[in-house]
Nucleic acid binder design. Structure first.
Ligand SMILES: [Mn+2]
Ligand SMILES: [Mn+2]
Ligand SMILES: [Zn+2]
Ligand SMILES: [Zn+2]
Lengths: 146, 146
DNA sequence: TGCTAAATGCAACAACGTTGCAATGGAGTC
DNA sequence: GACTCCATTGCAACGTTGTTGCATTTAGCA
């Protein structure tokens, strides 16, 4: 993980947002999970640790994190994951394992340019790309060879 | 549009599915819309034409169409669009205009191969890609130059 | 024209998401 | 540390979206 919780806290402060207990709790849950979490997933996981947050609060916190690019919404599942790339060039993409559900974030400037160039052929001016590769992660691929 | 309603009807028959009045009605609505439609959008549009379908029926019909690749779910909005590419090589991608909401479907085998190759660098075996470019369509781009 | 499996409608429910407003608490100031 | 202020949170109520089981209808075929 290149982007730590402490980095996220600093970004919140820098933008004038308060670093509250609920926000730190949600950051912690997102940081531990390797899979996308729905707002209600976050609530359940916190509940198991004896922490309670109202679901409205969780929605608002996740919205904020997405606006600040501290987290992303994974489209295929609707869940949220912590961003680990920071300001790396190119749109942030995901590889989603269909077997274990784990998520890997990556980015590639060249791929983005190629994608935008293709759209240009249709007269379309792309501003960003949403992209998820669906398949098998390395370890699940080995298991599937049985 | 390269794929017509009649083609969809033939695919339904060929796979042993009945060509019912509700299915033809949903096909008709999807065919006319240039934007992704939610199941309830479909219900509203049919309602305006004096046709009634239960929402459960619409959900089931859209699920079927997606399984047969007669339609796709557009992830960013959650709506459904009719597929116009048929069996064209490469995963079917979308360009979504942020101003007018229109959808353009396209595919490119080379882009898919490049995307899979990049995933392979992480040990990930991609089986298909979900991809949406977000920006301005040709006509909205001209208007935005004001 | 009837038969039958597939498809639809209905009712009830479950999950997900939103809004307005009152209560709380982070962070700066004294 | 205590005080203050406004962002943030909790609560309650509601609206939308999606699901399940079962009775009824109908497309496709003999
Ligand atoms: Mn990211
Ligand atoms: Mn298609
Ligand atoms: Zn896996
Ligand atoms: Zn447009």
């Amino acid at each position: 993980m290149s982007l730590m919780i402490q980095d996220s806290v600093r970004i919140l402060q820098a933008q004038g947002y308060k670093v509250t207990r609920p926000r730190k709790q949600v950051l912690g849950v997102l940081d531990q999970a390797q899979k996308p979490l729905s707002p209600y997933d976050v609530q359940r996981l916190l509940g198991e640790r004896g922490k309670y947050l109202n679901h409205v609060t969780i929605y608002r916190i996740l919205d904020l994190f997405c606006r600040l690019n501290l987290a992303h919404r994974v489209l295929s599942s609707g869940g949220f994951v912590k961003c680990i790339l920071g300001k790396k060039e190119g749109c942030h993409r995901f590889m989603v394992c269909r077997r274990c559900g784990t998520i890997q974030e990556f980015a590639d400037g060249g791929l983005c340019r190629e994608e935008s160039r293709l759209a240009e052929d249709f007269g379309f001016h792309a501003e960003y790309h949403l992209s998820e590769s669906y398949g098998l992660c390395a370890s699940c691929y080995r298991l599937e060879e049985s």
